[in-house]
Design a protein around this nucleic acid. Sequence first.
DNA 1: CTGCATCCCCCATGATACTG
DNA 2: CAGTATCATGGGGGATGCAG
Lengths: 121, 121
Amino acid sequence: MHIKRPEKTSPECIPNLLALRDSLELLGGKWKLLIVLHISCRPKELQHFKKLEKEITGISAKMLAKELKTLEENKIVTRTIQNTRPVTVTYALTAYGESLIPIARDLQQWGLNHRKIIKEK
Amino acid sequence: MHIKRPEKTSPECIPNLLALRDSLELLGGKWKLLIVLHISCRPKELQHFKKLEKEITGISAKMLAKELKTLEENKIVTRTIQNTRPVTVTYALTAYGESLIPIARDLQQWGLNHRKIIKEK
DNA sequence: CTGCATCCCCCATGATACTG
DNA sequence: CAGTATCATGGGGGATGCAG
């Protein structure tokens, strides 16, 4: 794949890296993009907390709650309390949150390819 | 062909999320994508260790060395020892490493936009 | 069931000193 | 200058209990 690279040092190049820092600060952990893609996988189903916890192998309930809270504060998911007994909570991607799907899929694809690259060593 | 499976079993969506885990495990930290974009910013210049350390605000030499080592092991950067006195070391993106640039740029762009979104709160 | 508080442990990271 | 080894430490994250 040929990537076009800038001919000269762009003045805005370095400063704008701050934006990448912002992204990485929010999304750079192990879980958030994984959660986003998990929710997006089954758009038609209600994404119960418990179901997410079971499906995302290795995450603890505490972590999941914390990550979902952060995602909610950043307008990426919505949190809905269902009127069941006992209470359940469902999560969904916002329209804005869906803007992360292409990025997550690119990373997913990259990871798929990377596994091959590394195995060829 | 597509085989219909009973009940809630998803298509290949969930299993493939393992690839996203791989990517996040390697790239999910605070620094690696930032380093990649830093190096890509000035393709014509030699990327000395010391220069990277100064430009990437907040990173310690120890961290930078560790991250660069991991990137090298994953074929994303090359490490070149220069015959100077005292010895200096330069880093460059591999052709493969350049495949991360579009992803990093997307994240950067997303971060730029996200700052606006959140401020509108 | 969901999510928070508390306790606690361990690892990632910083600081420092040292080698090549 | 680049990188490693050692030591100290703060906070991330697990386990548990409890409240709503």
